[in-house]
Design a protein around this nucleic acid. Structure first.
Lengths: 180, 180
DNA sequence: CCAAAACGGTACTGATCGGTTCCGTTTAGA
DNA sequence: TCTAAACGGAACCGATCAGTACCGTTTTGG
């Protein structure tokens, strides 16, 4: 039974985690920023780790829902995924992919956060494979893996270049792959 | 005038930073693992930040030197960069690209660590452009950017899949780009 | 051989980490 | 309206963080 405090905690934590990194953000800051009391936090979450997993799970669902909406609005073709992420790259608060960042920060593959991140990429790959299958592309599963590799490459490149150009370069490579 | 203690600090810090992340490794652990006294550390480095930058600078030089050696041994062609990184992906202690990880962990673009990471990617891009130019590839600078995007995409994918397969997929995409 | 530099160990600082507990207030449903 | 749950605030806990100061020992070069 989620309350308003729980939502505020998730909202604040997601924003701070994405902007500064999970390890870099202490509970102190999450509590003072959200205005939630310390005791209330532990009424909703067993600890920071559980908050992290809850934040990532929610972000995973929302992000993939957002992608689906943007892809539909951009024509519905597989290559539209690159147009969609290009929009994200241009935002001032862009800080890469929260799930790649999580895998980097939470090194332990057995940790909950790491596993949510892996699951997110698998769900994304399945989604792209569906787009490819719908458009009659051959070898949709293998091609989807290449598409996600290109999306991830574009994302980490954009984090460094602070530009949406990498998304367009990745799209060209994906287009080349479809034509082959 | 570097001493043995300084080298031990750099060796230990590089290993721990890469394995667990920069923020996750405290000075306490670096000192106990390396066997260097606390005072000795501060005789060599002004603080942890300076150690981090020194570690990254040294790793940048050594990594690019290693890449050049492997590329030469693997034929010297531009596509050999993917064969080289595939070897790294197979190692049990593979934890992605230390410089991508640094950019993720050290969010502040103005920070020293972040800047060393950006410089590393630029140096790598220049190196790949040189390979492409040597082999008569058209548009070597633009193509090098695509190559590095593919290398980074393969690296983060390998971090998740724990396999060298992403390097081979990236190589195929790069090969497609050269043929176009 | 001896002096000076480099060194390892220990004890300390203030700040912050995640986490626990209690208390008084606010909110919302029966 | 009245009760019970949800809440915010604050005082704690032990552990660890980066960083400082002083100690006696080891190493090394002139």
């Amino acid at each position: 039974m989620p309350t308003r405090a729980r939502e505020r905690l998730l909202d604040t934590a997601e924003e701070l985690f994405y902007a500064d990194g999970i390890r870099a953000v202490g509970l102190e800051r999450i509590l003072s920023t959200s205005g939630v009391g310390r005791a209330s936090f532990y009424r909703h979450f067993a600890g920071k780790d559980e908050l992290v997993v809850a934040v990532l799970r929610r972000r995973d669902e929302r992000w993939r829902q957002w992608l689906d909406e943007r892809v539909s609005a951009l024509g519905g073709g597989p290559l539209a995924v690159f147009d969609a992420i290009a929009e994200r790259f241009d935002r001032a608060d862009f800080r890469g992919c929260a799930f790649i960042n999580t895998m980097v920060e939470s090194a332990d593959p057995a940790g909950g956060a790491h596993q949510v991140a892996v699951a997110h990429k698998q769900a994304l790959t399945d989604y792209v494979a569906g787009l490819l299958r719908t458009h009659g592309a051959p070898r949709p599963d293998e091609t989807a893996e290449r598409f996600v590799l290109l999306m991830d490459g574009a994302t980490v490149t954009a984090l460094r270049e602070r530009s949406s150009a990498p998304a367009r370069r990745a799209r060209e490579l994906a287009s080349l792959l479809l034509a082959a």
